[in-house]
């Protein structure tokens, strides 16, 4: 029985780490225990100096269903001419449902040519990923992408 518990813990290390109790570990999806939309909102405020974000321009690609939350491919692109006086300065990616919402920030320059980037991230559970684009003129755009994160049947 002890062995079994170790397996479960292993698969849900994020839940464990977020300080959720044993009950939440068994329940798995007891979302309130580690939801962090407030922390995410705080982080976004810090990144954008409280500027108002408009929906659009930025596109965040995630698999509809992530096969494993440990390694989820993520791709971002922002519409912009990327010229010296009109370019994307930064893109911030935020995971609302992670124990710590910060994923990463990309900083572009006109030399980038395109405001495109891709990486792989850890997502603790099914959630919304927020993309924030900060333009050279100070305007801020945002997007929200839903991603399903599967809890594996085969821990192995």
């Amino acid at each position: 029985m002890t062995k079994m518990k170790v397996e479960v813990l292993d698969r849900r290390q994020f839940v464990v780490a977020s300080g959720a109790g044993a009950a939440a570990i068994i329940a798995g999806f007891s979302s309130a225990a580690n939801a962090t939309p407030e922390k995410a909102a705080e982080w976004i405020k810090k990144l954008t100096n409280g500027a108002k974000a408009t929906e659009g321009k930025i596109k965040v690609d995630l698999p509809e269903i992530a096969e494993n939350g440990n390694t989820v491919p993520i791709k971002v692109s922002v519409e912009s001419p990327m010229t010296a006086d009109n370019y994307v300065k930064a893109v911030h990616l935020i995971a609302e449902g992670n124990p710590a919402p910060e994923l990463c920030s990309f900083y572009f320059t006109p030399m980038s040519g395109k405001a495109n980037a891709a990486t792989r991230v850890r997502l603790a559970r099914t959630q919304k990923v927020i993309g924030i684009a900060v333009m050279s003129d100070g305007k801020v755009y945002m997007s929200q992408t839903q991603v399903k994160v599967t809890i594996g049947g085969c821990g192995g």
């Binding site: 390694t71 030399m111 980037a117 850890r122």
Partner: peptide
Amino acid sequence: KFNGETFFSSDWHGAISANPYMSFSFKAS
């Protein structure tokens, strides 16, 4: 960097997967 000038950079947090992968663009001149 290209010829010493930074054209792309990224801040990573604990949620970047092990053995990090990153791709990005560059305009050749």
